[in-house]
Design a protein around this nucleic acid. Structure first.
Lengths: 172, 172
DNA sequence: TATTGTTATACTCTATAACTATA
DNA sequence: TATAGTTATAGAGTATAACAATA
């Protein structure tokens, strides 16, 4: 993982970019804690959601969509299948592909994840009134669009660019 | 490193918490890219800044302040010293301590880092007008306070709580 | 020959814990 | 004995690349 530290800040406080980095990291940690209560990690949740939105998708398709390495998807799906949340169905038309589907148990889990995610959102945005929260969402939505971020897809899933990896601690 | 994926989103778009996680990650990556142009990583920059603000601080003090392991600080300071940015001075009163100071070259580098950080802030917030940027800063400052974040200190520096680490990919 | 899925290997990074020197 | 600093070891996690099956 990469840890950013802004170095140029005047007395009035840290820069917007640094605040985003700090709060984003905090939001990430808190989400991981929420997921841990159902014994999942964030990538597990991302894969479950992607399958829920695209039933029958292949593992390669999921990997491309989320920017994960295929070998990692295999490992995650192995775990989800072992725990009964996901099933691999052979595609008779192209027997190389594994069509991924949620089981009944997996669909139930998705409901629980949705609840936890709403709780996560409340924890992270505690301190703002509804009007402020709406304003913040609007501003962040603009920035997400400007920065080329794909809705629902966390950039931490993607393979990190080599640019930042030239030295030691780049992409933590 | 931890990658968060919010799973509960209605049609209107992703939750504030998910947007923060996405944008925070993006801001972190972009900052790492800026630092790479001067052959540094974010932790290097954080340590340089901490020394600039507290000349003569010991390595343990830096470690506590930034939430880094002392053994990691040693390695980072080794590199910064080898490159002539930092010097270790023996404290005659307690010869166990190494008082850290920036060299002239290190101070010059801090100026460059400040410039890069301002550039980073502009990149991340491109798409907002000055008024929107101010509003965003205010809202994020509220959230940073509510979430117990320390100004200038990125939580990624701190040892991640074990709570989120119970399984595999928690803290990216 | 190309692609999906899988497995195995190697590498990077980090934390842990030993070790020294001072106190 | 306790603490600052350092070094060495082991572990976790990832990416790379090899492999089998199918097209």
């Amino acid at each position: 993982m990469v840890f950013a530290v802004s170095a140029a800040n005047q007395d009035p406080g840290d820069s917007v970019a640094f605040l985003l980095s700090q709060l984003g990291h905090r939001a990430t940690i808190l989400f991981a804690e929420e997921m841990a209560t159902v014994d999942l990690t964030p990538p597990h949740a991302g894969i479950l959601r992607a399958i829920a939105e695209n039933p029958g998708a292949s593992q390669q398709a999921i990997a491309r969509q989320l920017g994960l390495l295929p070998s990692r998807v295999v490992a995650f799906v192995d775990e989800l299948e072992d725990r009964g949340y996901v099933e691999r169905r052979r595609n008779p038309e192209d027997r190389r592909l594994h069509a991924l589907h949620l089981t009944a148990s997996g669909k139930k889990l998705m409901g629980k994840i949705a609840t936890l995610a709403r709780q996560h959102d409340r924890r992270v945005t505690a301190g703002l009134d509804p009007s402020q929260r709406d304003t913040l969402r609007e501003l962040l939505t603009i920035l997400a669009r400007e920065n080329g971020l794909t809705p629902h897809v966390h950039p931490g899933f993607r393979t990190l660019g080599r640019g930042a990896n030239s030295r030691s601690t780049p992409a933590g």
